[in-house]
Design a protein around this nucleic acid. Structure first.
Lengths: 225, 225
DNA sequence: ACATCTAGTCTTGTATACACAGACTGCACG
DNA sequence: CGTGCAGTCTGTGTATACAAGACTAGATGT
């Protein structure tokens, strides 16, 4: 007897996709804290699907680095802390710098002048949610301008982890305003077609972001688990 | 009628792992050409395991970029050509340059002086197989020296694709000797602890490799599929 | 008291059965 | 001869049953 048919099959949406999306959100939003053990049966009951799609979702989580597989203890949500920020930026800085430089060579300037204008306005009224939305749109514009799937994939993988550390380091309004100004500089550099300017602006922005987080970390030592 | 390959179940080796390894090798070695459709049932029969591990293997292939999922036609081996080399190097150059620079700061010099000596000897008798083995050992040494899992993961993903393009561009002995010399320079730069020297040597090596492949591509136009 | 062996109970790994969706084929009709 | 449609059919998505491995806890022997 079918015990429960919670999910009517949404059009074109596989159960494994919905499970992965739900799990990823739960991890990124912190509802599933690092160290949480994810049992296949437990999650299958929680999400109302069978173990098979859950397994698929777990595989993708592990591939994305959001979970790790423990030998006999199941898969657990991967740990992350402000310590990881240094290692993440060691990858992020060269990749995004490269992306900005290539976007300057290949992008259509109008797109980025428009984005620069948006950042100018955003600087006046800093607000975290809209700021990150706008930054994401800039990243997307850079991605499409560069037109390199390998680079885009790497950056996408990276951004997942950056979202997690962002939760740990709450931005303050003045930093958001600074960040908006730096984003504007990047857009202007790309729009001008000067790849070196775009690279410099990107490098500057990321190093300032890193410095901000670093001093935040020094000021507020890690809360012991 | 396709041959049925009996997989040897190594101790502690899951069937999904062996299936993935077999499929990856088949793709990397060219036995499964780009465009080949991979049916779950077909591969499960060929490899002698059930569909479930095959599905898992397919997921990992797709995540690695070795296969893509077509809407109604199943999953097919992803296409790759010498055209991809430019896009790959747009990611590879900044990442490996960064890695070399960090290795110079953090690695133990003795490891890399030893590797440099090996490259010096390899330069005298260029041979593709041993050259790539040695280069792989250098990459591994850099990875461990840097100690950045995010960077290591990205480079590992990248190298899978580089193996595929390497098959398309057959190296010639003189290029191997050059390459060995350039690898030696990288090792010496890292061993000296001079990150800028290591970065410069890496950048030079990769740009020369790219130039070599590019002129190879011009000389020998793509065979139309 | 401590170590070790063993039974039990989780957990994951694998196989298979069933359901559904898309694509191909054959035929009829314009 | 082309086009549309229906039937079939293959192939994936999902569920579940079965098997095997691993940690745990308890008992037992030293």
């Amino acid at each position: 007897m079918p015990k429960r048919v919670i999910l009517v099959y949404t059009a074109g949406m596989r159960a494994s996709d919905t499970a992965y999306t739900a799990l990823q959100e739960d991890i990124l939003e912190g509802r599933l804290a690092p160290g949480t053990v994810l049992g296949e049966v437990g999650q299958s009951e929680r999400l109302g699907v069978s173990r098979t799609p859950i397994r698929e979702a777990f595989s993708r989580l592990i591939a994305a680095g959001l979970a790790v597989q423990h030998p006999g203890r199941g898969t657990v949500v991967s740990d992350i802390s402000l310590e990881d920020v240094d290692r993440l930026f060691e990858v992020r800085i060269p990749l995004e710098t490269q992306a900005a430089g290539l976007a300057a060579q290949r992008g259509t300037p109008e797109v980025f002048t428009a984005l620069a204008e948006e950042f100018r306005q955003a600087k006046l009224a800093p607000e975290a949610e809209s700021h990150y939305k706008l930054a994401a749109r800039m990243d997307e514009a850079i991605d499409t301008s560069v037109g390199n799937p390998y680079l885009s994939t790497m950056l996408a993988n990276l951004r997942v982890h950056l979202i997690r550390v962002r939760r740990l380091a709450k931005d303050q309004p003045e930093r958001l305003a600074e960040s908006a100004a730096e984003h504007r500089d990047i857009c202007l550099g790309i729009a001008s077609g000067d790849s070196q300017m775009a690279e410099a602006a990107t490098s500057l922005h990321l190093r300032r972001s890193l410095a901000y987080i670093s001093e935040l970390r020094q000021a507020e030592p890690v809360p012991s688990p």
